[in-house]
Structures are given as structure tokens and as C-alpha cells.
Write a protein that binds this DNA or RNA. Structure first.
Lengths: 243, 243, 243, 243
DNA sequence: TATGAATGAGCATTCATTCAT
DNA sequence: GATGAATGAATGCTCATTCAT
């Protein structure tokens, strides 16, 4: 009851809350959203009551998990905005989000307009997501890198559809290829990205291998990649040497 | 005892069976596949037992409903094959299916490779669908109307994704526009369809308004449309007069 | 609607009633008393409604079947009374009934005092059974062949218990042996049956093989058996020849 | 958290489990094994879920109840073995078990060879019972107190049959008398038990009133009885005085 | 605060019984 | 009369939620 005790207990509680959330995330991923709370509690090694202390209803727990995922995507959006040319940032982000969301129906639902009863946590996360997406989109439009008619609403729907496409596809890799092929249809063909975009650390960036054109995935740490792999890098070196 | 009596009895039962199926379809679309059979029965205005007489288990009902929908799409595929140039047939069919399937998750699931326990009815329907799709696709490829790398698997995944995209989109119309925009990315730009394709009744066909380019939906009855509406038709007439 | 038509229909109906009863008996024997009426109807090849026309409730059908069995036993009792010495008749009958009733719980229930709601058909059959049993018992008592304290109530309970004993026993044959062993405990040891009892056709009778002593089962047709099989008969012949 | 809290919690649960088991036992006895779990729950005054917490399926409850009863009988067998002469122990035990089992069909079923799917709990209990019975039987045989041909299988079947006999009989007392009369048929008449059997506390024992011969029930506490009641005891005293 | 036992509404399914054909 | 479709109460069982410990 003393202040330190109180503080300790709080830490305990927060730790427990996180434990439950992480367990729920895992179990949802493994067994779908229909798992019973009992199973989550058992997997987390806590009593049913403890789950309820932190998430007063199943619905709320069902929100907290995708909300967290959405917030992670917002962080990804911000990194793309900071690291790549406007068009590449938008398209790279879309590919990232779609790949991450594959198999997570609730995430997609949450991005869409709210259906059913209002779900505060999720709605707030979705709003933050929307704002980040808006920033990427308006940058890309200003850079002339995307079809001018495309709106943010289109993109959220596109993300849901793309995620399902990729989940549904027999081959995840091929699904990814198809998604990129479709996304390319939204680019403005004539406008090329300014060649000299530099990220906020001063590095030149590109989204495709500058030797063979293969798309590159965004690495948020380290110097931005320009080659799809060692083969192309070597080839580039040799070419430079040769000349 | 007599044959007519028998027939009448059957008609009654069939009517009820149809009632249940249609209700189930509606309820599934509104509330997802997790609705209880009790709710379906209540909505259909029949007793729980009646549902069970016609669909001996929930699983069977869960198959029967999408299987029927899939078979309807197969019929649509065949009509497109008979009525339009290869490329138009494929793309027109895709748009049709996606629009029809919007909001029907189970249909999409069924088109994909079978997950979980084998479901005979559904699998059979999916196979028929796949065969029809294969026909459309190979025709379109021979006509050079679609990206050569696209395979049937890509298209089934695409259908699922497109359906979700459209369902998810705030505006159904705008969702449709976006789907068409994405699909156009799969077309081979340089190859134009032979201009003089005629359907099996000898009519010239087109899939877009020949005045303003708006996509046309396939009418299976009457003479194939060439204009998106009276306005364009009138404009064409006037133009011809003028020249 | 004419009189002959009516008569024909009656014959039809009676035939159907018998069909249902016999089917029920078979199905009860195979699958226990918990079968659904639907299964009985299906096995009989009639509609559910037809079963209800003849047996207005399941309970009534559940009575009709054991009632019939009980009446058959009454007939057996009468045959024993006519064919064997009083003591043999009683004990032979008991063994017969126990063996016949093995596996038929409802029959045993019916023989006991009525528990639960009154079941008219069954009660009447049970009364007839009781009367036949009383006749056998009082004859046996007059002949001094059974423990004087034994009453009819004891015997009905004994039948139920014996049937269960035999059903329960791993080996049906051994169960029968045990039942006979127990029954022998009720005999009055000192009193021997009059050796010269003759049945109502004038034949001498015995209940055990006169060579080896094995118990004989009562054959209601043909001349009463005195040997348990051809081996013993031959042995007896040879003995007579030899002497 | 603390150990006492834990213990208390457990005590609560155990109390409820016992409540359910005892209620089930009662209800099974009254209404047969076909009662619904709902009725048991209602009778016990608990929710349906509580029944399921303790007995995860009806089948398990249907095993647990007779298994417990069987184990109680094993304890009775051991007490008889310790307290009475071999023959008396066996016959006394049989009478006890039959009386205890009267009206408990499932117990009898369980003693018999396993029919249907294997039921682990019940089978284990039946095995323990069988072993205890075997001990009593072989002792009795060595003492020459029972018909040599009788086997353990015979006795389990006999118990089932005897229980039904007694249950079925209009008068429970008379049923008991009859059962004892039948059992006496299994004894070896000539061999008398050694008169001086002493139990493991050194007392002389008998199973029948040494004055009037009435059978005595085994008292597991106190000094073994030798008279059926005060009347006979007094008579014996007087006799001794007189002599 | 954490635990897990208790609760009871809800679900899929069966089945005796009724009734339109 | 016969048929079998329709009915709806009941069953075994689950699970979100509450609450005593």
C-alpha cells in the first residue's frame, strides 16, 4: 500500500497486460480470431479474471491487437516518407503494408470505414493510419508519381484487397509479384521520379535494383540498398572498373 | 400416392429449400459466416428442423450456398466466352465476378486452393469454375490480350482480392472504378483486339462505349450494346449525319 | 368407399400394423430401446405418419413389442403345463423364459409390478403371464416339488434377475448353467417327481436326458425327447440290446 | 496466492464436485442413466457449466459415478476378507454387494465384460473389483466352502442378476431372502467351515445368529456380532445360566 | 490484484409429434 | 390411408463474463 509497493504493482500489471496482448496476437495468428478467451488465458499462463482486468471485454481485446499492428504500420509509413522519393515511398509503403497485413482480416477491416458499433481504440489507430497515408499520397501526387484521381479511400480499400489477394494466392511470392504488377497500373507512366532524391541522412535512394530493376524492400537500418544482391553489386563494380 | 400428389409435395419442399438457401445467402452476406442456424431459421420463418431437413449440417449449408453462387458464375463465364472478343471476355468476366462476389467471403475462399477438410460439393464447384476460367484465359493469351505471365491461379486470387477491395471501399462505384483501373494493368498495351470480333449471333461486339470509352456491362439478351447510354448514341448518330 | 373397398383397406392397414410391429421388434433387438421412430419407419419402409396411425405414441409402440413377447411366453407356459410333470414344468418354464428374455430389459420390467405411469397393454399382458405362472407354481407346490415358501412374486423377480445374469455373463452357455444351478436351490430335495408322468398325448416325459442327465429343452412338436442327442440314444439302444 | 488461499479455493471446488456426483448418483438411481445433465445440474442447484467443469462430458460422469461405487465395494470385500471365515466372507460379500447395487444398473454393467467403447476409469475400477473378488473366491474354494465349478465370471454375472432380482422384487426384504436362498445353492453342503475362525483382531466370528440362524450383516466396527438381536442374546445367556 | 470456479445464454443437432398434400 | 415435410422443445456442450476466495 505504500507508494513504492503501488509502483511495483503497477509495473506488474503493465507487464501482465503486455503478456496477454502478445499472447493474444500469437494465438490469433495461429488459430484465427475465433479462439476463446480461455485458451488465450491458458496460453498466457494467467487466470481468466486477469484477462478481464486488462481488457474488459473480448471485443476490446479484439481491438487492441490489430490497433497495435496498425500503429506499427504508421511507423513504417513515417520511415518510408523519410527515406525514399515521394512515389517510391508511397508504393513501397503499400507493398509493405499489404505484405504485413496478409492473413490479418481484422486489420483490414479496421482500415476501412467503421462498420458496426464504434470501436474507439481501433478507430483512433485507423485515423492515425489515415493521416500518415494522406501525407504519403499528397507527396506522391505533388511529385506527379501517381494517377491524379487516386484518393486515400482508394488506397485503404486497395490495401485490404491486396492483402486478401496475397493471402489467397497459392504462392505467397507470386501473390506479391501480382500485387506489384497491379500497383504499377496506378503510377503515372510519363513522369519519372527526380533522380537525385536523398533521404534524411543524405543518401541517394532507389526502390529498384539499379542494375536489374528488381524491386528492393525497404531496410530501415543501414545505408539504403541500391542492388538486389551481391551479384548485381559486383556486376556494377566491374562495369565501373571496365569503363 | 398418385404422381401429381408426389410432384406437388416435392414442389413444396423445393420451395422451402430455396427459401432457406436464399435466406442463408442474405444472412451470410449481412453478418458473416458465423451466424447461427437459429438466426437463419428465424429469418426464413421456418423451424430449426426445417433447415436441418434440407441441409443436414451447418457445414453442408456453408458449402451449398457458395457452391450455388460459383456455379452461377460459371454460367456467366460461358456467356462471356460466347459473346465477346477473347480479351474483352476475360476482363469483362473478371469485373462481373468481382462485382458479384463483393461481400461474399466464402465464395472467394472456395475459389482458392482448398484449406481445411475437403469439402466435396464446394471443391467440385471450384473445379468447374477453374476450368471455365482456364478457357477464358487461354483464349485471351492466344489473342495476345493479357500479360503472358498471368496464370489462372493469379486470377482466382485476384478475384478474391478485388471482391474485398470493392466491398471494403466506402463507395461501391469508386471501388469498381479502381478494380478496372488495376485490371487494365494486366492488359498487353500494344496488342489491340481484332476490331471485327463478332459474337455467335453475328453481331460486332465491344466492351466499351465506342463514343466515350465507358465500360459496358454484358447484356445477355438483345443486341450487344455499343454505347454507354442514349446520350452517346445520339452523339454518334449526329456525328454520322454531320460527316 | 363401398364395403369391399373398406374391407380391403382394413386388410392393408392390419398388414401395415404388423409390419411396423415386427420391424420395431427387430430394431429394438438390434439397437436397444433408444432407437428413434424415424429409423423404425425407414426400416419398415413406411412414412412416419403411418407409424403414428397405428401406434399413437412412441410409448404405446414401446409397450406393444414386449407385450407380444410376454404373450408368447404365456403360450410357452401352457405348453409346459400340458407336457411335463408339475415340478419339471415350472422349472423348465423358468429356464425357457429366462433364456428367451435375456437381453430384453423391457420384458423384465413389464413382469415386475408396474412402475411409472400405468401402461394398459403391458399391464394386461403381465396379468395374463402372472396367471399362467400361478398355475404352474401351485401345481408344483401341490406336487411338493418346490420350496413351499416361494411365491409368484419371487418368481417374476427371479426371471428378471436370471435374464440379466445370463445377458451379463461372458458366456451365454455358462450363464445358463449357473441359472439352472441356482434354480435347483429352490427345489425340495427329498421329494422326487412321480416317475410316470405322462403328457396330454399320453407320452412319458422327462426334463433331463435319461442317459447322461443333460437338461433337455422343451420341443412343442413331435414326440417328447428323452435323450440329449443321437449319441445317448444309440447308447441306450445298445444297452437294451445287450441286456 | 498464498498456500491457504489456494487450499480454500480447492476445498470449495471439491465440495461442489462432490455435490454434483452425489446428485448424479441419486438422479441416476431414480430416473435411470438417461437423465439429461441439465436435470442433474438443476437438482444439484448449480449451473450446467459447473457440471461440465468437473465432468467434462456426460460419458465421463457416467463412468465416474459407478466407478466410485465399485471402489467402495472393493473396500467392503477387503473388510470381509479380514473379518470372516473364507466361505462366510465370500457369501457375506456377495449379499452385501447385491444389496448395495440394487437399483444401480450401471454398476452392474461395469462389472461385466466391457461392452462398447473402452471406458478407462470404469475398466480400471472393474479390474480392482475383479481382483478382490478373485481373492475371496480362491480362499473359499481352498476352504471347500463353495461349489468347485464356480468361477469369478459367474459371480460378477450373479451380482448383476441378484441386484436386478432384488430391485425388481415387490418387497426388498423378500428379494433379499430369495437371493440368499439362491446363493445357498452354491455352497458345498458337506463341508462345514472350521468352527473356530478368528478375525484379525482375534475374535471368533460367525455369519449367522448362533441361536436362531438368521444371517448377520457384517459390522466393520465393534466386536463381531454373534446374535441377530437382543432377544437371542438374552436367550443364550439364560441358556448358559440354566446349564 | 490474481485466480479460477460458477454462471447461464447460446449453439448445433435430434426427434417425437403434427399436418398439409 | 399414406406420406414425409414442418415444427419446436430438449440435449450435450461451449464460452464470455462475473465473483468469491
Amino acid at each position: 500500500m505504500t507508494s513504492p509497493t503501488h509502483a511495483v504493482e503497477r509495473a506488474d500489471a503493465r507487464r501482465n497486460r503486455e503478456l496477454v496482448r502478445r499472447t493474444a496476437m500469437k494465438v490469433f495468428a495461429e488459430n484465427g480470431m475465433d479462439v476463446s478467451l480461455g485458451r488465450i488465458a491458458r496460453r498466457a499462463g494467467v487466470g481468466a479474471g486477469t484477462v478481464y482486468r486488462h481488457f474488459p471485454s473480448k471485443e476490446i481485446l479484439l481491438e487492441a491487437v490489430p490497433a497495435e499492428n496498425i500503429d506499427r504500420m504508421v511507423a513504417v509509413a513515417d520511415r518510408w516518407a523519410a527515406r525514399a522519393a515521394p512515389g517510391d515511398a508511397l508504393f513501397g509503403f503499400l507493398v509493405d503494408v499489404i505484405e504485413t497485413s496478409a492473413g490479418r482480416q481484422p486489420v483490414c477491416d479496421a482500415l476501412a470505414a467503421d462498420r458496426g458499433r464504434p470501436r474507439a481504440t481501433l478507430t483512433a489507430a485507423a485515423r492515425r493510419f489515415r493521416e500518415a497515408l494522406d501525407r504519403l499520397l499528397s507527396n506522391a501526387k505533388q511529385a506527379g508519381a501517381i494517377h491524379v484521381d487516386v484518393q486515400a479511400d482508394d488506397l485503404t480499400a486497395l490495401i485490404s484487397g491486396g492483402a486478401v489477394l496475397q493471402t489467397t494466392h497459392r504462392s505467397k511470392a507470386r501473390g506479391g509479384w501480382l500485387v506489384r504488377l497491379l500497383l504499377d497500373g496506378l503510377r503515372t507512366p510519363v513522369v519519372t521520379e527526380p533522380a537525385d532524391f536523398r533521404d534524411n541522412r543524405g543518401h541517394e535512394t532507389t526502390t529498384h535494383c539499379i542494375v536489374c530493376g528488381t524491386p528492393l524492400s525497404l531496410r530501415t537500418t543501414g545505408r539504403p540498398a541500391r542492388y538486389c544482391g551481391p551479384t548485381c553489386r559486383q556486376r556494377a563494380q566491374r562495369g565501373r572498373v571496365a569503363s
